[in-house]
Design a protein around this nucleic acid. Structure first.
Length: 270
DNA sequence: TCCCAGGTAGATC
DNA sequence: GATCTACATGGG
């Protein structure tokens, strides 16, 4: 299919998802939504190499957020902050994925105090050890049912360290609350529900809200965002909470998109 | 050896 | 309230 405002590599490699493998330039295997996708981009042409028309329409177009008009979002962001213009131009093919709630929650609990290659490695080990084998002999992330059969020791053996009990808490939460009921909540309600999980704080909650529940105003403040925001706006060490509320005022309902462009920019700078 | 990584909970002031 | 620290693990 033909697409604009989309770059497969930027979208996958910008740190919002961890469950994929690069085959060659602009060609990836993506494990998501209980399936394994072989996908390739050549210019404005995006090819879903092993998916039915029905799955493309019902699963992958929503997953990659391809129904949304990003040129309008970018225009409004630049209007709110002209200094974003060169940053957005550098990574103008990023789209914010609509990922599975369970996988996103557990992946971002794992993400704390780890770098992206380490997170990817642990997510892959969870899939290989406990997830169903799907297309191309590739394992997908375990379903909630499969996760419910895992023990804290299983997660420790997978090198999740001190996060293992946090993951167990999250699984207990997931048994009671699914993604659809989370999406039906207000932003504040959904965030409060997420942070009631021991091991989920403000940052992980914001990532889950943004990347799997459709709350595009969420502005996760991690070490990279903290650095770049301090450089651009504060000039000195500033509490994360203050950065988050500043962003809410400056970027409003498009905060999540601004955050993702800034995150990629901050990482590329170093 | 020390420092850092898409942080958080619990203790302490 | 705002700050300090332990928490597992791996890589530079």
């Amino acid at each position: 299919m033909k697409i604009t405002d989309f770059d497969l590599a930027q979208t996958l490699e910008c740190g919002q998802c961890f469950n994929f493998e690069k085959i060659s330039d602009n060609e990836y295997v993506v494990a998501a939504m209980g399936r394994v996708l072989h996908v390739k981009q050549e210019g404005s042409d995006l090819s879903f190499l092993n998916a039915s028309e029905e799955d493309i329409r019902n699963i992958w177009v929503p997953y990659f957020d391809l129904d949304r008009d990003y040129s309008e979002i970018k225009n409004e962001l630049v209007k709110a902050e002209p200094r974003l213009k060169p940053i957005i131009e550098k990574c103008s093919g990023i789209r914010i994925l609509n990922q599975d709630f369970t996988e996103t929650l557990i992946s971002f609990i794992i993400s704390q105090n780890k770098n992206i290659p380490q997170i990817k490695k642990i997510v892959r080990a969870i899939c290989d050890g406990f997830g169903r084998e799907a297309e191309m002999e590739y394992h997908v992330f375990p379903s909630l049912c499969e996760l419910a059969n895992m023990t804290e020791q299983d997660f420790r053996d997978l090198k999740t360290g001190f996060r293992a009990p946090y993951i167990m808490n999250a699984i207990e939460f997931l048994k009671k609350t699914d993604g659809e009921s989370m999406k039906a909540m207000t932003f504040a309600q959904a965030k409060e529900a997420l942070t009631s999980i021991k091991g989920v704080g403000d940052k992980v909650a914001n990532c889950v809200l943004l990347f799997s529940l459709g709350f595009r105003s969420a502005f996760p403040v991690d070490v990279w965002i903290k650095r770049i925001m301090e450089e651009m706006y504060f000039g000195c060490d500033t509490p994360k909470k203050e950065i988050e509320s500043f962003a809410a005022e400056r970027f409003g309902k498009w905060g999540g998109y601004a955050q993702q462009y800034l995150f990629m920019y901050a990482r590329e700078k170093s």
